[in-house]
Write a protein that binds this DNA or RNA. Structure first.
Length: 421
RNA sequence: GUGGGUGUAGCUCAGUCGGUUAGAGCACCUGAUUGUGGUUCAGGGGGUCGUGGGUUCAAAUCCCAUCAUCCACCCCA
């Protein structure tokens, strides 16, 4: 029990990699056909980059969910708990506002959060992240949500639930927070401790409260959607219009709230019912003003992230078929010591065109066939003293069981002609 | 951080009112098979029973602590 990966981290083993590649290839195809460029920011950034982006009242900061450390130069650095801050920093640093607008960026990789683990929640996990910078048009909101839906559908998921809401503009949120404080402060003593904390820091998040007593107090209150100003309201309606036009199934979630402070207007999540309590595959929203607050040019933005492990979990639940790992085209079996050198040399040459494995010690024919069978190869090719005399390989088709003597100079051609049959 | 479940072979697990040398299936290695795979048969390797302490003539089994793991709360990806 000594050799053990750190709590909340996992090895992705060879048998699992094909599923990861399937997700990555489908997502890449979906997003890049829509004009997204892949960006690969560093895994760690200055701590400040994350704190300024997420906000002081976010759980990432408040609950100390970030892996923060000091390097030898006494800089405070943090392993990324999400992609968006790194994308924003890179956008500003490289002057991407001069690129044709809007700029669409996507990325994939590990992120780190110091949370307690459960199904669908890990300390190192992986996200696919997508952001569009430079447009505040409702059309872009709808396009962004549609691409998320298309990407998840492309990997084979069904029965997805898209939840759509709006957190309004900053002044709407301020008005709503004021309203919540007005309504709840007189009876704050009846709220749980965490809810009282939220009432002080970010009242809107009270809507997430699960405590029955808290819910009782909150239920009669108005929702954020009731406080949308005219600009946010018409924006929200137009997004719905587009999604309806494109047949993207969605439902309005009047209580949708984001844990991160930077969201404005459109907010959305995609859920899947079969993967336990952590049912959110993805979350995202609009964040106009974020780049400006980070010292960049005034730039609108919207984006989302999905958790790769959760998507893989959902794929398994939905029975999505994953391509099998590649198997060798041919497996060479040396029947004596001399043949060991011969098949090793032959394998090197054949590998310019085929996938080739071989036994690395001499084998008797029965054992050699067993090696070949277990490699998953289509063909086994035996080499011993008889073959050496004739300059041939004894090639057996492991599916049909038929066998032929093939001159070594024609081995490649022989295999290529038959591998698809 | 809190709560509950579970820790016995690489994997899935049995064994637990305390009692000889701790078991099975799968996987792995060897042989039956000195030129032919999948099936079958025979044999073999592999365990500090998570860890530490306690009770006892005797502990995988009972008690305490601790760690890990799974699920859930919280929050979200």
């Amino acid at each position: 029990m000594k050799s053990q990966a750190v709590k909340g981290t996992h090895d992705i083993l060879p048998a699992q990699v094909p599923a990861w590649r399937l997700v990555e290839s489908k997502v890449r195809e979906t997003l890049e056909r829509a004009g997204a460029g892949e960006i690969r920011p560093p895994v760690f950034e200055h701590t400040e980059t994350f704190v300024k982006t997420a906000g002081e009242s976010s759980d990432l900061v408040v609950q100390k969910e970030m892996y923060t450390f000091e390097d030898r130069g006494e800089r405070s650095l943090t392993l990324r708990p999400e992609f968006t801050p790194g994308f924003m920093r890179a956008f500003i640093q490289h002057g991407m506002h001069t690129l044709p607008s809007p700029v669409r960026l996507w990325g994939m990789g590990p992120v780190f959060r110091a949370e307690n683990v459960q199904r669908g929640r890990f300390r190192q996990f992986h996200q696919v992240n997508y952001e569009v910078l430079g447009s505040d048009a409702p059309l872009i909101d709808a396009e962004t949500i549609a691409l998320l839906y298309d990407a998840l559908t492309a990997v084979g998921l069904r029965n997805l639930t898209v939840k759509l809401g709006s957190v309004g503009d900053p002044e709407d949120r301020a008005a709503y927070n004021d309203y919540l404080r007005r309504e709840l402060e007189p009876q704050a003593g009846r709220l749980t401790e965490t809810s009282q904390e939220r009432l002080r820091l970010n009242p809107m998040r009270l809507l997430d409260a699960k405590d029955p007593g808290d819910q009782e107090l909150i239920r009669p209150l108005k929702r954020p959607l009731d406080f949308l100003g005219e600009p946010a309201r018409s924006h929200f309606e137009e997004v719905q219009q587009w999604l309806g036009d494109w047949n993207i199934p969605f439902e309005i979630d009047p209580a949708i709230v984001r844990g991160l402070d930077y969201y404005r207007r459109t907010a959305f999540e995609v859920h899947h019912g079969g993967i336990g309590a952590q049912s959110a595959l993805s979350g995202g929203g609009r964040y106009d003003g974020l780049i400006e607050s980070l010292g960049g040019p005034k730039t609108a933005g919207i984006g989302w992230a999905f958790g790769v492990e959760r998507v893989l979990d959902a794929m398994a639940v939905d029975g999505v078929e994953v391509p099998a790992p590649t198997v060798p085209d041919v497996f060479l079996v040396p029947l004596d010591e001399t043949a060991v050198a011969e098949v090793a040399a032959a394998a090197r040459l054949l590998r310019s065109d085929l996938s080739v494995q071989h036994s690395v010690i001499k084998r008797n024919p029965g054992r050699g066939m067993k090696d070949a069978d277990r490699s998953g190869a289509r063909f086994a090719a035996l080499r011993g003293d008889r073959e050496r005399e004739l300059g041939t390989y004894e090639v057996k088709d492991l599916i049909s069981g038929s066998q032929e003597s093939v001159p070594e100079t024609q081995l490649l051609q022989y295999l290529q002609e038959r591998e698809d049959r």
